[in-house]
Design a protein around this nucleic acid. Structure first.
Lengths: 205, 205
DNA sequence: ACGTTGCGATACTTGATCATATCGAGATAC
DNA sequence: GTATCTCGATATGATCAAGTATCGCAACGT
């Protein structure tokens, strides 16, 4: 419509040294790691830069404030999550639930959840952080569990429980609680929740 | 000889205005409230003093540092907890568990748990805080639940579960998780955990 | 070659908070 | 009455982290 495209006119021919975008991911990963270990208040740009092995300026050039940096890191974390369309459907609830935790690296899962817990303290004071924390939070996780359980009930695998919503919260909430106490979230722990709590509760409802 | 003794006898007859010890409790209660609402890092002596309606000096005169103040507040909170000797023993597990949550004021319970969660972030960096946090933490709570469940199993009320330890963690952990998310911990929620998760899981084990 | 930008390093400003120190007024023992 | 302590209010120093600003060098386009 216009002769000179001034919309995003910075793409053509910008002089100078090019930004190394491979560092973006390193910085965001470092941000998650520091956030998981120190919480939001304890996260400093110094720590993030040191963890990434770069100078502070390199971080500030990409994200102007600490809040922006954390928002970026958590948003990126939420990418690649399992969509509701591609939930596992193995035919048994136990296998579905195991399939939900199988693909994740144990340590990465730990960092994810602890970073999320580290965000909770500031979720109220910063709207953007609250936004991304919600998407990356446990609500989607609870929703997935609710669907898995409902499907198992629908196909007659288990009787209808008296309180499906609360049952769907058990696994995510217990993982959050363990993360809040800085306790490791192992796969054995997750399996113990499935076999020792959720499935027995469904049988006994 | 007639001179006054230079011993450390400062207890008898100290001159000056007497300290108003009724303010101690007000300050400690305010500390818990601020701790529950803002977490440890967000807790400032200013906030505590303002919440108590006093000057900062009045706080510092009693507790020299912020850590001492928090230690005092949490220690006081742990007083009056149910000892292992006087656990409820009503004859049914459901009534025992209800008896554990009945005597507590709902809002006070909320403040207790959220203050405890607010402590978790610094439990590693300060040994004294870690100490009191442990006593006031959820481990004793889990232990109580373990005993209650074990007793119910011993008297034949329920079959022996496959994972009693994990079951005993369900209620405390879910309360902690809710507190970490700043969600209210209502009595209905606790009852839903008992009737919708723990007891069904015991029946289905 | 030259200007522009990315990067590391470092100094600097600003603001918040912990902790201490006064100052004046009121309360209390001697 | 006087010394001593408490309390409120405020000032002050110290520390730490966020964010800004350079400086020098490296890399890239023209």
């Amino acid at each position: 419509m216009s002769k000179t495209a001034t919309t995003i006119a910075e793409l053509p021919a910008r002089p100078g040294r090019k930004r190394d975008h491979s560092r973006d991911g390193v910085i965001l990963d470092s941000t998650l790691a520091v956030l998981a270990e120190h919480g939001y208040e304890g996260t400093t740009i110094d720590l993030v830069a040191a963890h990434a092995g770069m100078a502070r300026a390199t971080v500030y050039r990409r994200w102007p404030t600490k809040a922006d940096l954390v928002v970026g890191a958590v948003s990126r974390m939420s990418q690649g999550d399992v969509g509701l369309e591609q939930l596992p459907d193995t035919g048994t609830l136990r296998e579905d639930m195991l399939a939900m935790i199988r693909p994740f690296d144990e340590e990465q899962q730990q960092v994810r959840i602890q970073a999320m817990v580290g965000l909770l303290s500031v979720a109220r004071s910063d709207d953007r952080l609250a936004e991304v924390a919600k998407d990356a939070g446990i609500e989607p996780w609870i929703g997935v569990n609710r669907i898995l359980i409902q499907r198992a009930v629908d196909r007659g695998e288990y009787p209808a429980p008296s309180d499906l919503s609360t049952l769907a919260e058990v696994i995510p909430m217990l993982c959050v609680a363990r993360a809040a106490q800085r306790l490791p979230i192992t796969r054995e722990f997750s399996v113990a929740l499935i076999d020792g709590v959720v499935l027995p509760a469904l049988r006994g409802s």
